[in-house]
């Protein structure tokens, strides 16, 4: 049967064709493809690993951030409280200082008023004594216009002096 006897021509060409195909693919086909597929698999593996790491780091970072935020809130509250305290303190101090200043001013005023009054008193006394002297002068001059009266006065005065001595 023709079907079961291999034909020489076809066997020959089959060998030749397969050899050409095999050499061509061996040189420029399979190694490139297999290496490429391997490289891609490695790349994908690396990518997955990288993504997992990145996710882990992201989770960590989020936790850290949360911690930082809580910390910051805490500190903020502290600062606010501190500021409040400081505010009341400053107000208190200012009030104290104002009070002291006011007292000082009042004291000074009191002292000066006293002085003024004393001065005024002195002046008044001086003026009163001047007036009195002037009055006395006038009175004396009127009384001493005649000799008798003068002599009487001198006498009186000498008498008084004598009595005193």
């Amino acid at each position: 049967m023709e079907l079961f006897t291999p034909d020489f021509g076809l066997v020959f060409w089959m060998f030749v064709a397969f050899a050409i195909l095999f050499i061509a693919l061996y040189k420029w086909g399979w190694p490139i493809i297999l290496k490429g597929v391997e490289a891609r698999a490695d790349l994908i593996d690396k990518g997955v690993e990288y993504a997992q790491n990145a996710k882990e780091q992201l989770d960590n970072a989020r936790q850290e951030a949360d911690k930082y935020i809580a910390d910051a809130r805490h500190r903020e509250a502290d600062i606010l409280r501190e500021a409040d305290k400081m505010k009341t303190q400053i107000i208190e101090e200012a009030r104290e200082a104002a009070r002291a200043e006011a007292k000082k001013v009042m004291d000074a005023a009191k002292v000066s008023i006293d002085q003024e009054r004393k001065q005024a008193e002195q002046e008044l006394r001086n003026q009163v004594s001047a007036f009195a002297l002037a009055v006395a002068d006038k009175v004396v001059r009127n009384e001493m216009s005649d000799e008798k009266a003068q002599k009487r006065l001198v006498d009186t005065l000498i008498n008084e002096m004598e009595k005193n001595n």
């Binding site: 420029w28 086909g29 490139i32 493809i33 490429g36």
Partner: peptide, 14 residues
């Protein structure tokens, strides 16, 4: 056809 098929993949990888 086989060469075309295989080289198209090889070319892609290159």
């Amino acid at each position: 056809l086989v060469m075309w098929a295989v080289f198209s993949v090889a070319r892609w990888h290159k």
